[in-house]
Design a protein around this nucleic acid. Structure first.
Length: 597
RNA sequence: GGAUCCGUAGCGAAAUUGGUUAUCGCGCCUCCCUGUCACGGAGGAGACUGCCGGUUCGAGUCCGGUCGGGUCCGCCA
């Protein structure tokens, strides 16, 4: 018998029973005579004691134990003497008087301490190399359990609503749009390759054509792009879903309660910012960019941006005037209490604005006794006063300005807004601010090729107004039934009502410069399927690792993977990626693997 | 591809800004200790200060390069 109970469950009601516990030696306290061991497993810690006067042999074994050895002990549960209970642990009222002990395995001295330390206090590369030790921390165990609970909740949620979970292929096709693919050489078809799916996008749409009208999947997705703090390298999971015969609001009505329930059930955050009817706020993409300078705004704080193009259209400041004459805009961002920013802080904000393409960062700082600004002399006192009044600034505030093309003005002030919130501590960790971003544009100008038009987000979305819009409107003004769900400045979910009509599909691609033949080659399966009675459909994909990270304020998305890759895409524990044998390549009909520098 | 920060015993940090033998806590080893729970006490081992080069009478400290790691930009339909 390796165990009859776990180390977390015994209490005063078990006194008198003989039990067997198995686990790791968490800590050992040797008093010369009596020895205490804290025995640990996933469920908790129980103190076991060894008294030399009662059982010398067992005591001698205990004398030789070291941290992280694995032992099994059998003994009686006894209540602790008065004044020796430990309130800090669940089992602190009792202890085990050991009658029999077996050492199940020994352990080398650990490369880092897991007892009484927080994971972030240890070098992360070392933690990742010894992930199996890091996982022994209750911190990480709790996160694995939490993730399990989220996934369980999601699965139940969708099943209750008539969805079925369907597995889509992992060996799929390379897709021309989007992220870099992971390629898998085919042995049966020399010279051809599979690709790991970046998302089950096309498969789930094909399921809709196949009559599976409510699909979901906890879906693995693979993208070969550089990682970030909120983006795990290579592989991640999405809660993917798709429904037939729905419009945008139908999808929202499935997702909204889920987002709200997950927040309330599993996180300590309070949801703020809901509409009066309890719905999550919907913000058109254009408004989000203008007002918050981002398509994933953090709405835990205000700091709204205001266009003042008309107010300053005739001013004497060449930078403002020049931008407006070229068709650009002037936006103003008031930071309450920002007049206290130092020169150095303003310089660093300027760098942030420049990083988003701004040429500089003009400001008006309203100090106690004076207005300090490098641009007042150009604006004049009168216009300065009007601007201050227009943006509602008061003593102690600072106003930042962006004068540029609309896009650059938005994004640069958005970055400044975000950094100011950091500097002023406005990102309240106890709050969760969800919002929908809707009405994404269908197209935008290509950044690669001057004058060319590209899909702004993805080619599968239905343009608002359908074929008529595509035929009659300026492509840059066509909106898509495309939406994101945002929490605290992070994109949690992305989705769309899809384009299910071959005719509209060809036209949409034609505008982005694809011929009918190219569409047939690259998206042949989908188009062909749509020719056989595709139902209208739409759905979404939620980045579940990222949502957990945000709702639980984790330092890194790596924390919620049992075995994460490091920031360079390596698994330090398994030492992958690794070199392979020559004959493995041969089997795949691949020769001359050389690195092109 | 670019920017930026970091690298000192097994782990976490310090070294008075270029000055003796590189310090402290935890961990490890030995001994003592019968009610602790981050037990306590005494002693001990353990470092080519990431690596290579330079400046200097003298470098953990300054400079150049390189390797490794974190974060950000690009990228992520």
């Amino acid at each position: 018998m390796l165990r009859t109970h776990t180390c977390g469950e015994l209490n005063i009601s078990n006194v008198g029973q003989e039990v067997t516990l198995s686990g790791w030696v968490h800590n050992r306290r040797d008093h010369g005579g009596i020895i205490f061991i804290d025995l640990r497993d996933r469920y908790g810690i129980t103190q076991v004691k060894f008294d030399p006067s009662k059982n010398k042999d067992v005591w001698e074994t205990a004398d030789g134990l070291r941290n992280e050895w694995v032992v099994s002990v059998t003994g009686n549960v006894v209540s602790r003497p008065e004044n020796t209970t430990n309130q800090k642990i669940k089992t602190g009222e009792i202890e085990i008087e050991v009658g029999r002990i077996e050492v199940l395995n020994k352990s080398k001295v650990l490369p880092f301490e897991i007892k009484e330390t927080k994971s972030e206090e240890t070098n992360e590369a070392l933690r990742l190399k010894y992930r199996f030790l890091d996982l022994r921390r209750s911190e990480l165990q709790d996160l694995l359990e939490l993730k399990d609970k989220y996934i369980q909740y999601m699965r139940d949620y969708f099943h209750e609503r008539g969805f079925i979970e369907v597995q889509t292929p992992i060996l799929a096709n390379s897709s021309p749009e989007g992220a870099r693919d992971f390629l898998v050489p085919s042995r049966l078809h020399p010279g051809k390759f599979y690709a790991l799916p970046q998302a089950p996008q096309q498969f789930k749409q094909l399921l809709m054509v196949g009559g599976v009208d409510k699909y979901f999947q906890v879906a693995p997705c693979f993208r070969d792009e550089d990682p970030r703090m909120d983006r795990h390298y290579g592989e991640f999971y999405q809660l993917d879903m798709e429904m037939s015969f729905v419009g945008q609001e139908d999808v929202f009505s499935v997702i909204e309660p889920l987002a709200i329930n997950l927040t309330n059930s599993f996180s300590k955050k309070t949801i703020m910012n809901l509409e009066e009817d309890g719905r999550i706020r919907r913000i058109p993409w254009k408004e989000a960019l203008t007002t918050y300078g981002s398509d994933k705004p953090d709405l835990r704080f205000g700091l709204e941006i205001k266009p003042i193009t008309e107010l300053v259209s005739d001013c004497g400041f060449a930078v403002f005037k020049g931008a407006i004459e070229k068709g650009g805009v002037v936006h103003a961002l008031k930071i309450d209490g920002g007049a206290e920013f130092s020169r150095k802080e303003i310089d660093s904000l300027t760098e942030i604005a420049k990083g988003k393409g701004a040429k500089g960062l003009a400001y008006i700082s309203i100090k106690e006794n004076e207005i300090s600004s490098p641009i007042i002399k150009f604006l004049g006192d009168g216009l300065t006063g009007q601007i201050i009044e227009n943006v509602g600034a008061k003593k102690g505030d600072i106003i930042f300005f962006a004068a540029d093309e609309w896009n650059t003005a938005c994004l640069s002030l958005g970055a400044v807004r975000n950094e100011c919130a950091n500097m002023m501590g406005l990102k309240d960790k106890t709050k969760a601010a969800w919002c929908w971003i809707i009405d994404f544009p269908m197209y935008s100008y290509s950044e690669i090729e001057e004058g060319r038009i590209d899909f702004e987000h993805n080619p599968f979305s239905m343009p608002q107004g359908g074929l008529e819009s595509l035929e009659n409107k300026n492509p840059l003004e066509i909106l898509a039934y495309q939406y994101d769900l945002v929490i605290n400045g992070f994109e949690a979910l992305s989705g769309a009502i899809r384009n299910h009509s071959p005719e509209i599909m060809y036209k949409a691609f034609e505008i982005a410069g694809y011929s009918k033949e190219e569409v047939d080659v690259q998206f042949g399966a989908l188009i062909r399927a749509f020719e056989y009675g595709a139902p209208p459909h739409g759905g979404s994909a939620l980045g579940l690792d990222r949502v957990l990270m945000v709702l639980h304020d984790l330092e890194s998305i790596r924390d919620i993977y049992a075995f994460p890759k490091d920031g360079k895409g390596k698994d330090l524990m398994m030492d992958s990626p690794s070199e392979i044998e020559e004959n493995q390549l041969k089997e795949l009909y691949i020769k001359n693997i050389g690195i092109i520098k």
